[in-house]
Design a protein around this nucleic acid. Sequence first.
DNA 1: ATATCCAGGATAGAGAATATCCACGATAGG
DNA 2: CCTATCGTGGATATTCTCTATCCTGGATAT
Lengths: 173, 173
Amino acid sequence: MKLSDGVEAAIHCAAVLAQLNGEATLPGSALAELHGLSPSYLLKHLQALTAAKILESIPGPNGGYRLAKAPERISLLDIVLAVEGHQPAFRCGEIRQRGPGALEAEAYVKPCGIKVAMLKAERAWRAVLAETKLSQIVSGYEADADPRAVAFNCAFIARHQRPQGETSLKKSK
Amino acid sequence: MKLSDGVEAAIHCAAVLAQLNGEATLPGSALAELHGLSPSYLLKHLQALTAAKILESIPGPNGGYRLAKAPERISLLDIVLAVEGHQPAFRCGEIRQRGPGALEAEAYVKPCGIKVAMLKAERAWRAVLAETKLSQIVSGYEADADPRAVAFNCAFIARHQRPQGETSLKKSK
DNA sequence: ATATCCAGGATAGAGAATATCCACGATAGG
DNA sequence: CCTATCGTGGATATTCTCTATCCTGGATAT
Ligand code: FES
Ligand code: FES
């Protein structure tokens, strides 16, 4: 069992976007550069997050990505499901109705107890992820990470974010 | 994210073996036939369970598999870990120390908050699986499944199990 | 001695995840 | 209008893991 690598990148990106000012956006290429990732591949995950209404995208020059809602309303579960898909990790192949001794399909209305137990465990996993909001991740990061790393991130964001206030705004040198 | 298919087979097999009398064993080929699976492949998973001390195997004619301990002492987590391996599903690639702005390795002694949150969720999943014992699965099965299926399984087991009492025992008919 | 069974390594094949690339539509700025 | 920038989405190549099978060797009851 393995979660796809994109999950780590997606959460980190979302955490960065949560630190933008107001309606500003950050281009996908900046996100890729900041994390040392290939832009082409990261964009795929950002698209998935956009499709899931977690991010918003603004096309055109001066465009980019930003959160679609407040960080308090975005859970890790939202992000994981957007990237990984909504299928449960345990997939019951109805092994019980194979082999000799198989009955008609009507005999299997009650779900297999093993399936029930596995999905219950998965619900517990999802519940913890659903409780963890992006806002907690961000404040945890600002409190625990090396101050130099935090400062660099801030500067990087300030340097690449796009103010997005309807029209122009002079770029200071 | 996907759990390997072998997990479903392994748990079902363990549940069947839990229904054996005393020290009797059941050959892997019978287990495969009962579930309509390829013997060659199922054996791989049974070997993993044996290596994890969940099953015991007896070589030679009249040999086979049986549980290595009481069903109350075997949890679903034991089986899942034996088949899937012990690595967590979320693997942190330390994405935070890539890209520009990376610091020396000593600056990253504190684990990344995202990693901590993901592993915490995984612990919750494992905790539920650890609480669910094989004995509960078996009694749930006997209570909920179609009586005809239960009867067939019983008969199948009675037909293929190997008594294992030190030496011979005449095969009736 | 022989037949049955498990252990474990070697090896294809299938399918998913990873990683790129490009043509397209949208938009801000000149 | 024209152009440069940026996201969208499809097509594609590559890499890995999971799936599935086979075969040699060791153990053991008859
Ligand atoms: S039949 Fe799928 S878990 Fe039992
Ligand atoms: S660096 Fe791996 S989860 Fe943050």
